[in-house]
Design a protein around this nucleic acid. Structure first.
Length: 115
DNA sequence: GGGGTGACTCCAC
DNA sequence: GGTGGAGCCACCC
């Protein structure tokens, strides 16, 4: 994997995360696949960690793991991530999204919509 | 170059 | 539905 590929992947991740509609959420793996790099879920998580929302303006709180668990809550400063999600109408029980199946947003829909 | 780590994922039980 | 184990890949000692 070249540094150029990582750069492209990062940009793709940014675009996809920026597309997430309010009140919805997606997973690292889904983003990685939509970016054309399946299996790069961990790298997607790392990218989010290096680019906090305060700096990039990305809704990183709408990105969780494939089970709808807020695995990035500690990187978000504890309960702030959960609070942001609930303020958008997403119910969170414990550290997990309650209606994950309904809340889940597949980035492939947006990618596929674009020629 | 080998080993540990992580904002992960899949599958069996 | 939750839990545990194996697989995964980039990154950092």
């Amino acid at each position: 994997m070249t540094s150029k590929e990582r750069e492209e992947f990062k940009e793709a991740v940014y675009q996809i995360v920026a597309m997430i509609p309010r009140g919805r959420a997606t997973s690292y793996g889904a983003i990685a696949r939509a970016a054309g790099m399946p299996g790069m879920a961990r790298l997607a998580g790392r990218i989010m960690g290096e680019c906090p929302a305060s700096k990039t303006g990305l809704p990183a709180h709408r990105v969780v793991n494939s089970q709808g668990i807020l695995s990035g809550c500690h990187a978000f400063g504890g309960s702030r991530m959960q609070q942001l999600l609930e303020s958008e109408g997403i119910r969170v029980s414990g550290r997990r999204i309650a209606d994950w199946k309904k809340v889940f947003w597949d980035p492939m829909e947006e990618i596929g919509r674009q020629p």
